[in-house]
Simulated scan of single mutants.
Amino acid sequence: MPTQTFFNLPEEKRERITEAAMSEFSAYPFAQASIARIIEQAGIPRGSFYQYFKNLKDLYKYIFNLAVEKKLQYFEDRIPNLHGEGFDFFQILHRLFMVGIEFAQEHPELLALGDRFIKDNNQKLREEVLAEQNPKSLDFYGEMLRKGYELGQLDPTTDFTAALLMMQALNKALLDAYLTLSQNSQGSILEDSRYLDLIDKFLYLFAHGLEKRVVSNE
């Protein structure tokens, strides 16, 4: 994480540095990222960089922390019944995926950052970043699950941990689908019937599973 010196900087300067770093990490895998390009774009001396961050990895992990926090706050702002009255687990989950795409379209630089991260072959760094950031998304999904169970909207015999991991995997699967479809989409992916249909089908499988249902003749 950055030093206190960084947080003491004027907001405009902090934003200039983080925007330069976001641009760099979105364009290059970590092994090819350059402090020189970041400081040139941010307009700061090289010596100042090391007053703010231990090294390039320190900055990289900070940028990911900002990205995750920004996305979670986006969810909070755009899903008013996420915590309050009127909570419906599957309606909220559906809305969550739609809002996630809205976020991606409004913040293409963060989408590019995540895509670059997924494709990066630096396994050790990936594990470090995920170890820091995964608990945030798991807490977010976990709170939804707990509320669903408490309100009797979910089968109490199902395993909480398994459901939690499935929600996280479902989110990644839809992100991958978004990246694939958006490359060939002529307009907004939110207007693409293929993607909207995929969300419905994924959620149906999540809610009902793959087991064949026996129809009673009685």
Rank of each mutant, 00 (worst) to 15 (best):
L130R: 15
L113W: 02
L66E: 09
L164R: 03
L113C: 10
N55L: 09
I63F: 01
K57I: 03
L210G: 07
L198C: 08
S137V: 12
L110H: 15
T180Q: 12
Q41E: 12
Y28V: 01
E218P: 00
E40A: 05
F103K: 06
F160R: 04
F202A: 14
Q51K: 10
Y52V: 13
Q105N: 11
K201M: 07
A112F: 00
N171L: 09
F49A: 06
K71W: 07
A36D: 14
R213A: 01
F87D: 04
E132Q: 13
L170E: 04
A21V: 07
S26M: 09
F202N: 07
F103S: 10
I63S: 00
Q73R: 14
A27T: 03
P10F: 06
Q73G: 12
F90Y: 15
F117A: 01
R16M: 13
I17R: 01
R78I: 04
L190K: 10
A131E: 02
Y62P: 08
V99Y: 01
P45V: 03
P135L: 04
D77R: 13
T18G: 07
Q133L: 12
E102I: 01
F25N: 05
I39K: 00
N81M: 11
I189A: 02
E76M: 09
L113R: 07
A27F: 05
G148L: 03
Y52M: 08
T161N: 14
S23H: 05
L190C: 11
N171R: 14
P135R: 06
F117M: 01
K71Y: 04
K70W: 06
S23M: 11
L56Q: 03
Q186H: 12
E218G: 02
F30K: 10
A162E: 10
V215K: 09
L196H: 06
Q51N: 03
S193K: 15
K61F: 00
H107L: 02
A27D: 04
F90E: 04
I63E: 01
V99E: 15
R116D: 07
G47V: 03
E85H: 07
A169Q: 12
A36Y: 07
A163R: 08
F90T: 02
N8V: 01
F160T: 03
F90G: 01
E15S: 05
L110V: 03
V99C: 13
A21R: 01
I79Y: 10
T3M: 05
E132P: 04
N171G: 11
R194M: 06
Q91P: 00
S48M: 11
R116E: 09
I38C: 02
